[in-house]
Design a protein around this nucleic acid. Structure first.
Lengths: 201, 201
DNA sequence: ATGCTATCTGAACGCATGTTCAGTTCAAGC
DNA sequence: GCTTGAACTGAACATGCGTTCAGATAGCAT
């Protein structure tokens, strides 16, 4: 039997991507088979190939979509004045965005090594572009004399690692709420670069 | 032909573990086959089973050995006085130890999800024990009024993530030397918890 | 020189993999 | 009510997987 009532490509497509993202995050790209993804969606493995040319593209598309969304959301942030306020805003944004998408984040950061060279180059470029927005803030802050960082590139990577680490332990409904976590991390980020944390918003 | 001159188990065993560690770090546990490991060592796949009961044990042993070494080295640190000096020492130690073992670190942090439940529990306990040594420093510092951290557990995870992140980009002979990186990260760690960085040693 | 044993080979095992494709099914357009 | 075509099945494909094991090899003790 094929085509149960109401099943269309607009439904199945996203469901495949969601299942793949979830399974890739949980078990890793290489450890997940197309048949497992299909089973999660309730479909045979062959049907997946109506929605993706191959497994590799499925991974690359997930990562690209995540990073595109991240960059777009970051670019849409309301403008604020001064390096401290900008870093505070960036840190809170980064935490918030990543907390809401633990699976996508996990995949985007852990499966880089499973990308074919061409895909790797493209994804890596997006990642670098995001890092550059943070580094620009740090450079401006150092030029303005409000951040004390010996090396902006290193500080960028250190801050990103620290902020992204939140996805390793944060769970909805845990001991600490979203806003608290954002506030604490933003304060630590400002401290780390030698600035004073902003008063709690 | 078997047994080339001078080839003994004391040689082959470590070579297998080294090859496995390197390949697991590069491509991921699930993406690496026993035949690839064997080829790297210059041996047939069957020979691996003289040194490990199965692929899973190979992974678990690598991770356990790494964490055992980390805990032992951490415990062997010379005692220093005061939370600031202890955090400074811990940060430098962490950076230095991890910089020297990028493959082992990568495997120990990224392949947790590929461990069978029993192995996972054991490895996770070791990791937690290591984190606890840092959290103890932060608690003492807060009790002494020299660290300003709203939540020591959260600060612990944030610092570990930041410090471990160094393995993602550090390369021997790069722009920054080992000592510089250690100093910068130690300063950022102290800053992050609201303490003043120690004068450069 | 001979036998012993640790070390390793090479082939085989059953099974899972990513991918293809001829054929089936069903909602919608006429 | 018939036709069309998108959505999907189910079987098959070559290949590779982890693991096993009988047998070959070579250094060591005697």
């Amino acid at each position: 039997m094929a085509r149960k009532t109401g099943s269309h490509s607009e439904i199945t497509g996203p469901r495949i991507r969601a299942a793949a993202e979830h399974l890739f995050a949980r078990h890793g790209y290489a450890a997940v088979s197309m048949r497992q993804i299909a089973a999660e969606v309730g479909v045979q493995a062959g049907a997946l190939y109506l929605y993706t040319p191959d497994k590799q593209s499925l991974l690359a598309d997930l990562m690209r979509d995540h990073l595109d969304g991240l960059l777009a959301a970051c670019a849409a942030l309301p403008p604020v004045n001064g390096p401290e306020a900008r870093l505070d805003q960036f840190a809170r944004f980064h935490i918030g965005y990543h907390i809401d998408r633990p699976d996508a984040v996990f995949v985007a950061y852990m499966e880089l090594r499973n990308l074919e060279p061409a895909n790797f180059t493209a994804i890596e470029a997006l990642r670098r572009r995001y890092e550059n927005t943070l580094e620009a803030i740090l450079r401006d802050g150092r030029a303005a004399g409000v951040f004390a960082v010996p090396d902006t590139k290193l500080a960028t990577l250190a801050l990103i690692a620290m902020l992204t680490g939140v996805t390793n332990w944060y769970r909805e409904g845990g001991r600490l709420g979203r806003a608290e976590v954002e506030a604490i991390y933003a304060a630590m980020a400002l401290n780390a670069v030698g600035a004073s944390p902003l008063p709690t918003r």
